[in-house]
Structure formats: C-alpha cells, structure tokens
Design a protein around this nucleic acid. Structure first.
Length: 854
RNA sequence: GCCGGGAUGGCGGAAUUGGUAGACGCAGCGGACUCAAAAUCCGCCGGUGGCAACACCAUGAGAGUUCGAUUCUCUCUCCCGGCACCA
C-alpha cells in the first residue's frame, strides 16, 4: 500500500474497475426490490456547474447506498438538449446548434465520468435525437385526437391535490417522506382551485351595435360575448369567490381583450388607444400585481342582477382575459385591487361586510377583506359568509343569472415556440384541407441539423426542403408547420424512456412497468412547479391513453438547495461595477469576524456584496473541473455532502474543501499505519472482554453508526459525513498497540469504509481491497450496529432544578424512577438549589434527565 | 403584490417525539516538532462577571403554552425561491 494518498491514481483505477465490470448496468430482475434513482438531466451547456455536481452527488450517494442495501438500482443519465442557449451560441459562433450541442455532450460526459457516478450509460438519451423526439410528436398527435391539445377542460379538471400524492407516500421510520410539504402547497396554489359563483350582469346596447365575436376564449362558451345573436340584449359574466359582497358592487371591470371593451372602443379613439396599450403590456403575475391600476370608462352600463341598479363598465389593466370570464365585479369595499382602482378613478365605495359583533371604521382606509356579516345589503343583512353565498347563489340561479362554480387558476399550457432548436410540431398546412396532422407512418418529422439561426426569425421558414411537402389528405402541395415544441415537453417524460431507450417501435414498453415510478427524484427547488407539474400532467395523459398504468411518476422528491458563493465588486468612478471572483480576493478576518477584503492583484480593497448563486454576471463561479483536477472527485463529493444538508443552500468555501481533503488524508494515513501492524483477523473481538478504554471506543463507533444509519435514511448526508469523522476520531484515540486494539480498529475501519463508500466511493473501494476486506465494497452488506456494543452498566443523567441544568449523576442502567429520585435528591448540587424548599414533583425522563420542581 | 421557505457562535452546521444548545468541521489563538516555513500533532475557542469554584445572559425581535421551548401557538423584522416564452 502506498503511504501517500494520491486521489487521481486511485480514482482512475476504481473507475476503470467499474467500467470493466459494467458495474452499474441495470437489468430488470424480479428477485430483488428495484430502486429507480433519478436526478434531473442537465442542459448540455458545455460545462458542469457546481449545482450539477451537488445534484448528481446526492443521487449517487442514494444509488450506492440502496445498492449496498440489496436493491436492484437504476441510475440513468441523459441530456435536455433542445433550447434557446444553443441558438444563441450558434449566432455568436456561426455553428449549427446541433453541432454545438453534441460537442458539449461529449465534454460534459467526460466530466461526469471523472466524478465516479454510478450511472448506467447504456441508457443515455438526448432529447434532440429523432429517436427520442419522434415520441413527442407521436404523443402530440394522440392528444390532438383526444381533443386535449385544444380543449381547456382536459387540463383543468385534473386536480392532483385531491388525488394520489399522499397515498403514494413512502414512510420512512414513521416519518412522512415523499414530496416536501412546500412543493405540494406550491403546486396546490398554482393550480389554484377556488370555489365561487359565476353570475351575469344583464345589459342592453343601442340597437344595431353588433358585438364583435370573441377572440381566444375557450371555456365559458355561452358567456355574454357569444350572445351575438341578440345584439340588443346581453349578459356580462363574471366570477367571484366573494358572492357575499355582491351588494357592494359599484362598477364592473373588463379586460382589454374583452368583447365589450372592443365594442365600446369602436367609436372611441381614446379607449382604442388604451386597449392597445393594455394588450402590449406584460401579463406576468408579478407585473400585474404591482403595476398601477389603470382604467378607462367604456360609457356602457350594465344592470345589477339583484338590485336592478345601473353599474358602469370600465376597462381595467388588472383584469386578466385568460382567467375566469375576463371580467370582474368591482367591490372596492372588500377587494384591495378594486379599492385601489376605485380610489384612483373616484368611483364610490360601498361597504357591505362588517366584523361579527362589531362595526367598520369608516371611511375605509383600505379594503376590508376578512369574512364577516352582511350589512347595508337589503334582505341579506345579518347573514354570515356561507349563508350569504348560498342565498345569493340561489337567488341568482332562480333568475337564470348565475350558479356556483369551481374555477382554477391554472392556465392552458401553450406548447408552441417560434424557435428552430426544438421538436417540430407534426402538422401540415394545406390550402384545401386546412391543418392536417402528419400520419404516424411519416414520423418522425426530422429537424434539419445544419441550420444556423441568424436572429432574424425561425431558420426553418427558409428551408424549402423542410417546408415543402404533400398534404397527407389530398396529396396536393402543402407546407409544414415551422413552430417547435416547448422544451418542457421533452423533460415531461424522459424518465419513462430511460426504461426502454432502445425501443424503436414504441414510446414505452413493459420495462416501464418494472422500473417506474421513480423511487427518488432529485433536483432544484426552482423546478417545484413547472417541470414537476408538467411531468405529472403528462403521466396522467399517458395513463388515460393506456400507455402506462402509473398514477404518479415520482414517489419521492428531494429538492436540493442552491450553491452560493461570496460576491466581491468595486465601483469605478464612472459608476460601473466590476465583479471579482472570490478566488482573486484575499479576505482577512479579525476574531470579531469583521471582514477585510482586498484584490490580490493590486492590494486595494473590494466591497463584499453578500452571498449569491454562482453566476457569470456576478463572476463568483467555481469551475468543478478545476476542483476535480486539484483535489479529485472524492474530496469534492465529501465537501458537498458534509457542508450542508441537501435541501439547504450550500455556501462555497475553499477552506471547507481543504478540510475535506485533510480528513481523507488522515483516513488514508490511519489505514496505512494499520496495514503495517495489523493481522487480518477480528477474532479477538469475539468473547474476550475488551479493556475499558477499547470497549469505550467500540461503543462510540457503534453508537455513531446507529445514528448515521438513521441519518442516511432521512437523507441528512451532512451528519453521515460527520459520523465518518467521529468514527475516525474515536479509532485514533485507541491505544496504538496490541491485538485487541487491532481488532477494534479492524472492525471500525470495516464499518467506516462502507459508511463512506456512497460519499467517497473511490477511496473506499481502494482501501477495502488494500486492507483485505474483500474485492468490492459495493458488494458488501451495509453495516449495522452491534447492540451488545452499545450496552453500558451505568448511564449518565442530567439533573435539573426547575428546568435548569445543575449537574449530572451516574446511575445503574436498570435503576427505576424511585431509586433515581432518591439518588438525585441526595446530590449536593441539587440540595444547594432546592435550598430546603418543598419539592413539588420530580420529572424523570428515562435515560435522559431528571427535573426537580420546587 | 401573491404563493412558498428560512433565520442558532467569527463561519458552515448539530440537537430523532418538547428534555444537557453549539456535535462535527472551518477560521482564529496558544504550544510541540523545525535553522525556518509548510505539513502534522496537542490545547483553548458563544457573551458578561469572577483568581477560581461558579453564576448570569444567549437559538432574528416581542408575547404565550409547559416542570422544561432552537423545537408548539400568535404578532413583527429581515433574507431567499417561484410567478407560466430561461432551463
């Protein structure tokens, strides 16, 4: 055995061993429980970043752990290879996106290999290959047949929150695992199921003023806008979750795209301009919520369905055409947006809800949002929220002007992109037959890979060889669709394809039945909504088509935290900010922690800008390749696992990496010295009583192992790494000589190398062989603590008086409460603090503490 | 703005069901080894007072429940993630 730890040599050796023995090739095997461990596949940007390293290390730790626990484990890898960056790179370098992407894949695969991940590369896939994306196209056509592509209801009626998330949960040690609560809550809010009332304000327009036909509206078909046959009379439909406030309506607001707005704008130039302005502005939620509430009167009035009073109609920039009816009732007294709008437009505010058993403070300074009791509301006065909603909904229904309704915030998924580097949408435009789906037999519609986008639109539009085709229906010349699919389509089902990447004839086959669902999915929290929701949606579609029997694609989800680093900058006199990589900055700290940072290059101070995600713009990235080149994979992996729990953010620290290196060198040195002195037998442990000190060391090793096994099951890998440190510390404390010591060290090293092997597989592999434990640590069983090593004759109890620690006592292991009480009350420290006062009670927590209450 | 999450020494973090706050590591300080430095090893290391024994304070701020709260409840402050064409 070498005296010096040389990570690069042993890592290359271990990786060769795994490659030669095809160690990570996963085959369907019915005699073992399966474990499908999946990390989110990377976008092939060209270089791994630290987030990837962290993500895949977490996945690899689980993969190797479950394998040693006897599972048949699959850990695949692939490439989320379509997307915008390739087009941007293409424009910058004049290289086709395909070429750029494939080159990047080669580079990144090499990097992944150098980290020693237990990946089954035989299942590798890239979403930009026709043999993958043809199934995007195929499934798109199935959805088209089913009407899912157009039909709004197909999407929104799916309510995962009420379905199987909880039912599928796996329970570990009595603790719910599965999906983090916050992800479920976020998705639930995103879907945004809300219960309310849909109702209408009747109106009459001057005769002969036909409404233009509605645009872009799917559901809510019989709404006011489509009452075009009755030009004089119409209904303005709205949705509200607060029907109890209906008597407080002082206006209505419609979206700029609403038919009534268009009607009113026809002979009103100012309103036309305003409608145009609204159309142009952003529709993101954040902007909508914070922008100024602008509006303009349409000059039209509608009739309140319950009071019969006239209500003015406004166009409001805060009303979203895509949600509900594209129109809202305005109740400024009880809705903050309406309040802002009414205040700005000097519209009346009519409060109609007051706190139960109290009064409103008038005039209102802000909308009163809490539920309460109706007042100022005619026949509804005195009703509470539920009674009011029920009564009002019934009254509206009686007039044929409304009903209760469930509405979802979830919008349609617009999947088409005006981009080149994506899956072609398999549609053909024919002048005679309209939009015609490409027949299954003609799939895939292959994306030409030699285009170079130049920033002037989709290059496919200029490719005659792509565009020109025959209409599948009538055979006449026709044109192909040039839009491509959102890349979220690619990532919505790739985890199924890993089960059967070689099947040229079908999208999925029976191997999906074996491997799926994914037992553990690992990725960034930033994907908690979109990607995960799309994947679940996609799975349900495939289930409905009979392609899979899965209810949910992922049983457990681990959302890993981001990798942060310090940010340093300097503002020049011109006001421009220059960012400096933390590696170029020398930081000194006094013992109070105040920080002094200077740039190494010039010795001048730089500003510390806090912590931020590693990014190009802040120039605070650390290249994983440099880390691996310098320290090797095991040290990088150990640092990643030790520094933070997987779900928390991880702050980069050069000193922390150095600490990880120090530990592994210390482990190596210990193993080396052991190899010089030890016999290869642990027989001395059996039967023979160990000296007290060695028994203590052994007890600690097993106690730490017990805790570590709990921690690894709950995915708290930082304390597993720290357990490995504690075990080495304990072994180093043992006296240096003697067969009993060697036996304890031998057993301890055997435990330690196995415990470490998921985190630092290379050094574990090497030392396992070198010290004669066996041929392959991966084939060894996971270590379990020996209960007999944990037994102590005397245990230590903490003694409290009135909940404050006042000392500790040693008592026999099997002492009962009574005996403990007697011992404790006789303790001098206790007597001092009891100080003659009567003892009210004594709380004994077995094995932990005793609290004397006076 | 809405939704979600978080806050513990100089730093990363630990504390399993409410039971010794600060495990393990980093940084720092002191010492050994060395001609010297690096590496390595040993010791100290939340704050205040005290020679010390020890006492008091302390888990973002404020209240509450409890024999006992980092942990449970309420209010507040600050930081982070998502918000639908970035992936």
């Amino acid at each position: 055995m070498q005296q010096k730890y040389n990570p690069h040599v042993i890592e290359r050796e271990a990786q060769k061993y795994w490659e030669k023995s095809a160690a990570f090739r996963a085959a369907e095997s019915p005699d073992k429980p399966k474990y499908y461990c999946l990390s989110m596949f990377p976008y092939p940007s060209g270089k791994l970043h630290m987030g990837h390293v962290r993500n895949y290390t977490i996945g690899d730790v689980l993969t190797r752990y479950y394998r040693m626990k006897g599972y048949n484990v699959l850990q695949p890898m692939g490439w989320d290879a379509f997307g915008l960056p390739a087009e941007n790179a293409a424009m910058a370098n004049g290289v086709p996106p395909a070429r750029w992407t494939y080159d990047n894949i080669v580079d990144m695969k090499k990097q992944l290999a150098s980290l020693g991940f237990a990946i089954d590369w035989s299942r590798e896939l890239a979403t930009c290959r026709p043999e993958y994306y043809r199934w995007n196209q195929w499934l798109f056509l199935r959805m088209l047949e089913k009407g899912l592509v157009y039909k709004k209801t197909g999407v929104v009626n799916w309510d995962p929150v009420d379905q199987t998330v909880l039912a599928n949960e796996q329970v570990i040690d009595g603790r719910g695992s599965g999906w983090p609560e916050r992800v479920k809550t976020m998705q639930a809010n995103w879907i945004g199921k809300s219960f309310g009332v849909r109702f209408a304000f009747p109106y009459e327009l001057p005769a002969g003023s036909n409404l233009p036909s509605p645009s872009g509206r799917g559901a809510g078909g019989e709404g006011g806008a489509s009452e075009a046959q009755a030009p004089d009379k119409g209904l303005l439909w709205v949705f509200t979750t607060r029907a109890d406030t209906i008597m407080g309506v002082t206006f209505c607001a419609v979206a700029a795209e609403h038919a009534l707005a268009a009607r009113a704008a026809r002979d009103n130039a100012k309103l036309t301009a305003f409608v145009e302005e609204c159309r142009r502005c952003s529709v993101t939620e954040a902007d909508l919520a914070t922008m100024e509430k602008k509006g303009m009167p349409t000059g039209l009035t509608v009739t309140h369905p319950l009071t019969g009073e006239p209500v003015p109609v406004w166009v409001g920039n805060y009303v979203l055409m895509a949600y509900g009816e594209g129109a809202v009732m305005g109740v400024p007294g009880h809705d903050q947006r309406d309040f802002d709008f009414a205040t700005r437009q000097r519209l009346p505010i009519k409060p109609v809800i007051k706190p139960r058993g109290g009064a409103l403070e008038l005039p209102l300074k802000a909308a009163h949002l809490e539920y309460g009791v109706c007042f100022n509301s005619g026949q509804y006065d005195g009703l509470d929220y539920e009674q009011a909603v029920d009564t009002i909904a019934a009254d509206l229904q009686a007039k044929g002007l409304g009903e209760k309704q469930v509405l979802y915030r979830l919008r349609d998924w617009g999947i088409s992109r005006q981009r080149y580097w994506g899956t072609p949408i398999p549609i053909i435009h024919c002048d005679h037959c309209g939009d015609v789906p490409v027949p299954d037999g003609d799939l895939p519609v292959v994306l030409p890979e030699d285009c170079v986008p130049d920033g002037t639109g989709n290059p496919l539009a200029k490719r005659e060889d792509f565009l020109k085709c025959k209409c599948p229906k009538c055979g006449k010349p026709a044109r192909r669709e040039t839009d491509t699919m959102d890349t979220f389509v690619d990532s919505s089902w790739y985890y199924l394809r890993y089960a059967c990447p070689d099947n040229g004839g079908h999208m999925v086959d029976e191997r999906v039945q074996y491997w799926l669902p994914v037992d553990q999915y690992i990725g960034g929290i930033e994907h908690a909504i979109l990607h995960l929701l799309y994947s679940r949606f996609w799975t349900k579609v495939m289930r409905d088509l009979g392609l899979v029997t899965l209810e949910e694609p992922f049983t457990n989800l681990l959302t890993q935290g981001m990798v942060l680093n310090e940010i340093y900058s300097r503002r020049s006199e011109s006001g421009r900010i220059a960012y400096y990589n933390p590696a170029e900055v020398e930081v000194t700290q006094d013992d109070r922690g105040s920080r002094n940072a200077v740039l190494r290059a010039d010795g001048q101070p730089v500003d510390f800008g806090g912590l931020g995600t590693m990014s190009k713009s802040k120039n605070n990235g650390v290249d994983p390749q440099e880390l691996i080149d310098h320290y090797g994979a095991d040290i990088a992996r150990f640092f990643m696992m030790f520094t933070s729990p997987p779900e928390d953010t991880l702050v980069w620290s050069d000193a922390g990496v150095e600490g990880a290196a120090r530990y592994l060198r210390r482990l190596w040195t210990f193993a080396w010295r052991f190899s010089k002195t030890a016999t290869k037998s642990s027989d001395a442990l059996r039967g023979a009583a160990l000296p007290k000190e060695l028994a203590g060391v052994r007890r600690e090793v097993h106690a730490v192992l017990k805790q570590a096994n709990y921690d690894i099951r709950r995915h708290q890998f930082n304390t597993v790494a720290s357990a490995a440190m504690k075990i080495l510390n304990a072994l180093e404390r043992a006296p240096e000589t003697g067969p009993a010591r060697n036996a304890v060290a031998h057993e301890g090293l055997g435990i330690l190398l196995r415990l470490l092997s998921p985190i630092t597989p290379h050094v574990s592999h090497h030392l396992w062989r070198e010290l004669g434990f066996g041929k392959d640590v991966l084939a060894a069983p996971w270590p379990e603590p020996d209960p007999s090593a944990l037994i102590e004759e005397e245990i230590e109890l903490v003694v409290q008086v009135n909940g404050r620690k006042r000392g500790d006592v040693r008592v026999p292991r099997d002492a009962d409460s009574k005996a403990i009480e007697t011992i404790v009350l006789a303790d001098p420290a206790v007597r001092k603090f009891v100080n003659g006062q009567p003892v009210k009670k004594v709380v004994v927590v077995p094995g932990r503490l005793v609290n004397v209450v006076v």
